[in-house]
Design a protein around this nucleic acid. Structure first.
Lengths: 149, 149
DNA sequence: TTGTAATAGTTGTTTTTGTAACTAACAAGC
DNA sequence: GCTTGTTAGTTACAAAAACAACTATTACAA
């Protein structure tokens, strides 16, 4: 009872999930082993390292992450002295997040790993394909307008 | 403190995760709302619908899913009468899974939805790009040899 | 045969996530 | 000033995933 015209392994969401999971594995191992971080935490760290001081909401908007996820990630990162939180004086609801020296160091390390890792992953592709692939992925992500509360 | 040469949104694992999550959302809503299924269950259903009668291990090997995930998915699918489980007489450890009529119906419905959905997702791409994208994703998934126990 | 290892699948326990309800601070209208 | 609504972020509880230990059955070798 198979359908010649539909192959599960060609179904884009399935394919994307498989590729995402596979390609995250090795990198995950690194930030987990070296810094005991979870994916959410790594993401927050990268946002702060890359774009500098931000608030939790800003990170959430950029990364399409729910605020509770971020809240918990920040909490853990702060406990481990990777980030500092400082209240805004004008609006005392918001909190500015920034990396500590330790956070900077971890970021620098992982950032460099990521860069190399990305290179390895796309090593098989020609430069054109590499660009095309990423463009298509960006387009796919953008297709759905930030589906979180 | 930003690095001109590394953009988080261009980091392949990140990009893949975003695209995977975004593209799964709408489809997930459908199988969840219509049949109360989880992603794992949907996957098992599709494997059985597409390739016919199989054992749990076979599904695990194909889908790169851990056996506990499958065990629980099968349990729920069986409770809801979507699949039947029959012991193998020769080797009484193994169990053959197959879809019930109800399972077939659900599969047929979702299969058709998936097909349409996939079409919509890749609508923006030319046929060449579509093929190229999927090829690259398959290659990326294969790059890591089934990293599960 | 009997003892050891391997395989199929399950169950129990701990992490992580998702969802919803909550507090605190601000904003705007009246 | 008050009420009503909104936003930033947290907390509590339920759902799902990850991980490890387990049972039952088969394989295989001394």
């Amino acid at each position: 009872m198979s359908d010649a015209d539909f192959d599960l392994t060609q179904f884009l969401p399935y394919l994307l999930n498989q590729a995402a999971e596979a390609s995250s594995l090795e990198f995950q191992k690194i930030y987990k082993d070296r810094y005991g971080m979870l994916r959410t935490e790594w993401r927050v760290l990268f946002h702060l390292g890359l774009y500098g001081r931000m608030t939790a909401s800003e990170i959430g908007a950029r990364a399409n992450m729910h605020k509770t996820k971020i809240s918990r990630a920040v909490q853990r990162l702060a406990e481990r002295r990777f980030v500092t939180r400082t209240r805004d004086d004008a609006d005392r609801r918001v909190e500015h997040l920034a990396l500590t020296a330790q956070g900077q160091a971890a970021y620098a390390d992982l950032h460099q790993v990521a860069q190399r890792y990305d290179g390895d992953l796309t090593a098989g592709l020609g430069p054109d394909d590499r660009v095309a692939l990423k463009k298509m992925l960006v387009a796919l992500s953008a297709k759905f307008p930030a589906g979180f509360t």
